[in-house]
Simulated scan of single mutants.
Amino acid sequence: MKIVFDCRYVRADGRHDGISRYSAGIVAALGRLHEVTMLVSDERQLALLPDLPWVRTSAPTSPLEPLVALRVNRLGPDIVFSPMQTMGSFGRRYRLVLTLHDLIYYRHRTPPAQFAWWLRLLWRVYHLAWWPQRVLLDRADAVVTVSETTKSLMTEHRLTRRPVTVVYNAADATGTVSTAPRPRPEQGVLVYMGAFIAYKNVEALVRAAARLPGYELHLMSRIAPADRRRLEALAPDARLVFHDGVSDEEYDAVLRRATAIVTASLDEGFGIPVIEGMRVGTPAVISDIPIFREIGGEAAVYFDPTDDASIVDAVRSLETPGEWERRSALSLEQADRFSWDRSAEVLLELLRDVHNSGQRAGA
């Protein structure tokens, strides 16, 4: 079985986003289980990818994308996996598995800023109705998604007639993986990793931080100067630490001395930072939304993201004697459910099933 993995969504600037990290994590683990050829559109993407055979083709944002299968055919694949649902398939002579990560953009229609203007326009139009998604997904032989939460939403909205398999997202391993609970940190450190866009609801965390005088809120991601000024003005009494982007090593170091990883997001596709915190024994204090219940399980502390007092109470609950240590131990157990190796095993089984069914159909 010859597998081609579409790695064209990996960032070329050396810094992962969600789709990029998912692509790199899965293909690296899959490559340890089976021979894989990576499809890239920019050789700079290789800096974030494993040392596996690769072929270059057009970018997924190219106007030629609907015809990309004609070029992929030349590689002679038996099956192609794409971590997105938009990979062109016209004229394909191979089995195809596509991925739908979440339905966030149906509720929050602002497209990714890095897209060209015409692509942002198409993005908005595309998310005005469900039928374009159905057309894209039904071109595949099977569909992958990253959570049971999204799978249930896909069923609710009847987005595909194809079988849907959950291949979980996971967190990259940085530093030494914790195997035992650690003592509660003496200093109150809350860590937020994520964007500063409306549905992330970072403002609620900042307001809550102003009511937690014994805590610092560390904002790890790159931030525009205007957003920083706005957050600082929102709660002058809050102890905010702006890192404006960090290396994986710096991020790991802050997580390991943190009281909690926090997010007040109103909506999410998965929530990798939650797993990143839990896998080093740092409890998660997070919004009470379905996807976080799925990935946080019994380990996380949940709050109402529309109520600042609820956030404060959730953080303070970790001050109860023994509670932080209990949550830390549960976090390690919960995070162990999510790994690239385990996800790659699920994906490989799916690819084999799809490949075998295609052979039977052609027999």
Rank of each mutant, 00 (worst) to 15 (best):
Q359L: 15
S58M: 15
R207V: 00
L128H: 13
G175P: 05
H101R: 10
A226Y: 11
Y215G: 05
L52R: 04
G296S: 10
G322V: 03
L128N: 10
L217N: 02
W123P: 08
T259I: 05
G297T: 01
L49Y: 04
D138G: 11
S23H: 03
A300M: 07
E345K: 14
A314S: 09
T320H: 11
D341C: 02
L348I: 01
P321V: 01
P185R: 02
R326M: 06
P50D: 07
Y302D: 03
P321D: 04
W54P: 08
V125M: 14
H157Y: 15
Q187D: 14
M84D: 14
E345V: 15
D138Q: 10
Y9E: 12
Q334N: 14
D353I: 02
G25N: 04
A258Y: 00
A208G: 01
A224W: 12
L48F: 04
Y106L: 13
I289S: 10
E319D: 15
R139Y: 06
Y94K: 09
V10G: 02
D288F: 07
T155P: 01
D304R: 06
S178M: 09
D141P: 08
D13F: 09
Y22L: 12
D227F: 05
D267T: 01
R93E: 07
K151H: 12
D304C: 04
D308A: 08
T86E: 15
D308M: 02
R316E: 00
F292S: 06
R120P: 05
Q133C: 13
I311L: 11
I104E: 05
Y105V: 05
E349T: 14
P50H: 08
V4H: 09
L39K: 11
R124G: 15
P53R: 07
A173E: 12
A235H: 05
L351T: 10
A69W: 07
A233R: 07
Y105R: 15
A361Q: 14
L46K: 13
G25P: 00
P83G: 12
G358L: 13
E156N: 12
T320D: 13
E268C: 10
V191Y: 03
A224H: 15
D42F: 04
A140W: 12
R182E: 00
T165W: 07
D141L: 08
L39P: 06
G277I: 00
C7K: 08
D141W: 03
L266T: 02
D304G: 03
A300Q: 02
R134A: 09
K151A: 15
N356I: 06
Y9K: 07
P53T: 06
P273R: 03
D336L: 02
I272G: 05
A170L: 02
S147C: 10
